[in-house]
């Protein structure tokens, strides 16, 4: 499985929405590819941030009022609905921008967390390649993943 295919399926993989075979293929790739494993960690972290956000309380009687408005179909409601639609769209857009910022900050690692699991994995990969290069009878080429380049 290629990195591109894996990364396209990562979100579904983390949500447990992939079929058995596909799930196994992604899991196998993540075990072998440090770059995609790091990407998966970032997604998991972003997902955890979302899950930890407080869920707003729904006002009492909202459902009844919504049903009444839908069946009443008055002009004033249409105006208010337009305003509400705009307000809701703005809120969704603001949330999307905020989420984007969180994801960007996490993926670009502005202030790196001290216990970022991916960090040591990359160092190990580079370290093993480094010593493979120094051994004239090493069974491996001294090659590390290009994505490890800082």
């Amino acid at each position: 499985m290629t990195c591109r295919k894996t990364q396209a399926s990562l979100s579904a993989y983390i949500d447990g929405e992939l079929g058995g075979q596909e799930m196994l293929r992604v899991r196998k790739h993540l075990q072998q590819c440090q770059a995609c494993a790091a990407e998966a960690e970032v997604l998991r972290f972003a997902q955890q941030l979302l899950a930890d956000m407080p869920c707003p309380e729904v006002p009492i009687g909202l459902e009844d009022r919504l049903v009444n408005h839908v069946f009443a179909g008055t002009g004033s409601l249409q105006k208010r609905s337009t305003w509400r639609t705009w307000a809701m769209s703005s809120t969704v857009a603001a949330a999307a921008v905020a989420l984007g910022l969180v994801a960007w900050t996490v993926s670009h690692g502005a202030p790196q967390r001290q216990s970022d699991p991916a960090t040591l994995a990359q160092s190990v990969d580079q370290n093993e390649a480094y010593f493979a290069g120094g051994d004239p009878v090493s069974p491996h080429a001294p090659v590390f993943s290009v994505s490890d380049a800082p």
Partner: peptide
Amino acid sequence: TKLVKLPRGGRS
């Protein structure tokens, strides 16, 4: 492990 971690799985 309080300072750094390695992800589970992999080849080790």
